[in-house]
Design a protein around this nucleic acid. Structure first.
Lengths: 223, 223
DNA sequence: GTCTATATCCTGATAGAC
DNA sequence: GTCTATCAGGATATAGAC
């Protein structure tokens, strides 16, 4: 008798996660009501609480679904790089960090692109619980990459490296969050905004140059 | 009989704007209620509607108060640069753009620092009206700086320049929004996080290097 | 201009039938 | 597991006394 008789197990969960991903990206966490969300997902209002327990737990699940595999991939790429006989170049490390993220940019149908923009926004989310969540999920990866970059750039002062990593992370976060803002700066063909390989090349070139910028000014003025 | 008998004209407006600046920064726009806001400002709940008309209008006023002078300063610094006999260097243009923003970082008491963090967050704000607001206020300035950078870098393809400006803007936005996240990457002395001159030097070095990164990779792969 | 009181609506969450 | 109905509270905005 059901209209969705062939619904697989856990499809409700997935439908909720997909709808949440899209609506959180469009309107933010606070502004997305469970009513709107469940309506879009085509499920009952009570389903969110039944399957996830609370709105915050749903937010956490949305991030875990994508972020855990992404961070595993980042670690894997870095380990592959470090298994080589020669030392890894800074740009290789940067690309290892970027590529698992940018792969999702091309996944428009699966919702990966939605998530990527959501992720970019979450880094500057005002709500403390959400930022803590993201911070916790990223912390171990950041530590690994920080160590890798320290080995690749042995002469850079630690403090300067931390700042430059911060800058790099910011460039990525904003680029993910605000891909639509490029048009604000100038018209550019929309289709190549989402070419992941091209975007990775552009980002890697910019970030690698920034990471290796001359140290003179800051050292002099800080002294 | 009033407890605040010596209250100057428009002080209520200012108290509301100051409280809004801080609370919007801490909790975001959606999560900041008028009740909390007016309580913090020490004014009546109805005062916001009387003085500003609506919550969105209040948000606009919060941005206008700081952004209009800031963007005027950016234009002024650029015009000063272009009045020189020699051509402006890219790093000079970058610094002209940065410095009016970073000056506010040092204004902890006046609330400037609050606004700066709020501004960083607003760039990736999900709510469309707010982003449109920020976009409109920035558009003329961005045009001017784009033209200036085109003159300073005549050999860079327009499209690449737009991307690099986008990256630069992102670095700034995230740095402003997430000054507390630096500690997530690694412990660093909190007091020098807010040394505007030092921060400008660090940012300018990073951004200038990124802006002038070799073009090889992208050109080759794009072809 | 400032206040109190309130209208109107929407929020996340849950109880309990099916 | 899914539904309806509802709770208790908070949201913006306003009406009207002072």
């Amino acid at each position: 008798m059901s209209l969705r008789a062939v619904k697989p197990q856990h499809e409700t969960r997935t439908r909720i996660l997909d709808a949440a991903e899209e609506l959180f990206m469009q309107h933010g966490f606070e502004a997305t009501s469970m009513r709107l969300l469940t309506a879009k997902a085509g499920v009952n209002l009570a389903a969110v609480n039944y399957h996830f327990g609370s709105k915050l737990a749903l937010i956490e699940a949305v991030f875990r679904r994508r972020l855990d595999p992404m961070n595993l991939a980042r670690i894997a790429e870095l380990e592959q790089l470090e298994a080589q006989s020669r030392a890894a170049a800074p740009e290789e490390i940067i690309r290892a960090f970027l590529s698992p993220t940018l792969e999702l940019v091309e996944d428009a149908k699966g919702g990966g692109r939605n998530f990527i923009r959501l992720l970019g926004r979450a880094y500057t989310e005002p709500a403390k619980p959400v930022r803590q969540l993201i911070g916790q999920m990223h912390a171990p990866v950041m530590d690994r990459y920080k160590s890798a970059l320290e080995r690749a750039l042995p002469h850079m002062p630690r403090e300067e490296l931390v700042w430059r990593m911060h800058f790099m992370f910011g460039t990525l976060a904003y680029t993910l969050a605000a891909t639509d803002t490029v048009q604000l700066i100038a018209g550019c063909k929309p289709e190549d905004r989402y070419d992941a390989r091209l975007l990775e090349d552009r980002l890697a070139a910019f970030l690698n140059a920034g990471l290796n910028a001359p140290l003179g000014n800051t050292i002099r003025k800080a002294a």
